[in-house]
Design a protein around this nucleic acid. Structure first.
Lengths: 100, 100
DNA sequence: GTGATCTATCATCATCGCGTGATGTCAGTG
DNA sequence: CACTGACATCACGCGATGATGATAGATCAC
């Protein structure tokens, strides 16, 4: 029941977060992401690799293009974990362990 | 409507994530967190500083002890943002922008 | 075939962040 | 008062990570 810190770490980068937001609205190929973010092609490709390895996005080759789509499930699982922690904290907001 | 990447970045560290999980169940002082995590006092204190700056936890001085409690609201906001992105992705799962 | 385009990988460099040790501060105790 | 304990802050070394340039592969147009 520990937090998926690997997904968190991947999401923590600003450029990767931007890519995830863009992919949430529509599937895009690398060239689109390069245009939208203003980052270099190499940089975008490197970050896409990390996003792929974390399972956050899926690559769909189409000819010489590669379309990427967001895996919403991973995002939902993470949101559920965080929300669950917040709920636990709400229930036991007053609990305080005494110091020895 | 951009993702709170500052909170994400703070949560991405394993030790900080562990601290957040511990604080979700009860308020603890620094000495407790040092015991539970096995990390050094300096290290815990440094991470608590970042958690404080991000608004994730609040410090409550009590004599020479300092109790920390989790701010569940920040966690809920983040969970809502991530969940919202996932919902958008679900709605437009088929949308694919053509390459020029 | 040649050339152009899109993308991924590799190697390198610069920067950032974590962990540690030393030091300082404040509260309680004798 | 001096002394101890609980935390915080500062400064530094080092490993991790992001950005860049060069290169390679793969596909399409001609």
């Amino acid at each position: 029941m520990s937090v998926r810190s690997d997904v968190l770490r991947v999401l923590a980068d600003p450029l990767r977060a931007q890519i995830v937001e863009l992919l949430a609205h529509e599937s895009l190929c690398t060239c689109h992401l390069v245009e939208e973010t203003g980052a270099s092609q190499t940089n975008v490709s490197n970050h896409l690799r990390l996003l792929r390895q974390a399972g956050l996005v899926s690559a769909e080759p189409a000819g010489r293009y590669t379309y990427y789509r967001l895996n919403a499930d991973v995002l939902k699982d993470l949101a559920a974990e965080l929300s669950g922690l917040a709920d636990i904290a709400d229930e036991r907001a007053d609990t305080r362990r005494p110091c020895s």
